[in-house]
């Protein structure tokens, strides 16, 4: 995915918004917003590229208190299409005016769960036919999941409880796979060396990338070297 790697830039609201803008461009979405509640302080951290007029409307009316895309979606392990809320009175009350602000009620929420019980929500919208929407969803869902967790982890590391705890620990296998990648070996070769399937290598690499807050393997290798987890030869 050709979007900024939040692990490589200083964390700031501006960078989170840039990330959201680039994600919308790459994944052909109209708007996106991210929100998380600090479980201890109750402070909400949110970032959105919705038009300011909609943000004002939403905040002035305290719609976040009733919005089911925030309250209900976090109960799911899977992204929740807002079609599921069509007959929900609260959804209707939040989104009935959205059209006036150029916001479509066609969207979905990606719920995110962090290792310490922290949770986040990434909402995205796209105005198009239902057929196009279903096709787009199939196409982008995997990247959307990766982007959602990348953004959440980055926000938690700077604003949340997790900041003191840093990155999730890498397993010995993940470090081995990164070490061999740093040595220039391909996934198939690493699989042969470690006597595991190339898909198992891929899973360890993906896990290592996400734990290190990196979107690319090159970035993950760089960070692992920087943190002294692996050693270039």
């Amino acid at each position: 995915m050709e979007i900024i790697d939040l692990g490589t830039v200083p964390s700031s609201s501006e960078n989170y918004l840039t990330f959201i803008d680039q994600m919308c461009d790459t994944l052909e979405l109209d708007f996106a917003s991210y929100a998380t509640v600090n479980p201890v302080t109750g402070v909400v951290h949110g970032y959105a590229n919705y038009p300011d007029s909609w943000k004002m409307h939403y905040m002035n009316r305290n719609l976040h208190r009733v919005d089911p895309t925030l309250h209900k979606a976090s109960l799911s392990i899977a992204p929740v299409d807002w079609q599921r809320f069509e007959r929900d009175q609260k959804f209707q009350s939040v989104f009935k005016a959205a059209g006036d602000f150029g916001i479509t009620p066609q969207g979905l929420t990606v719920p995110i769960r962090g290792p310490y019980g922290d949770r986040g929500l990434l909402n995205v919208t796209r105005s198009c036919s239902v057929e196009e929407w279903d096709k787009l969803k199939r196409h982008i869902m995997g990247n959307l999941q990766t982007a959602a967790v990348h953004l959440h982890d980055s926000v938690m590391r700077t604003n949340g409880l997790v900041s003191a705890l840093g990155y999730s620990a890498l397993s010995t296998r993940e470090k081995e796979v990164l070490q061999w990648t740093a040595a220039g070996k391909l996934q198939q070769e690493i699989g042969d060396i470690l006597s595991i399937s190339h898909r198992t290598v891929e899973i360890h690499l993906r896990s290592a990338r996400e734990k290190l807050g990196a979107l690319t393997t090159v970035q993950a290798v760089g960070r692992a070297i920087g943190m002294g987890l692996i050693h270039p030869r």
Partner: peptide, 12 residues
């Protein structure tokens, strides 16, 4: 997992 940290991925 032989007491190793588990894999963690948005897509697993």
């Amino acid at each position: 997992l032989d007491d190793e940290p588990p894999i963690r991925s948005a897509r697993v």
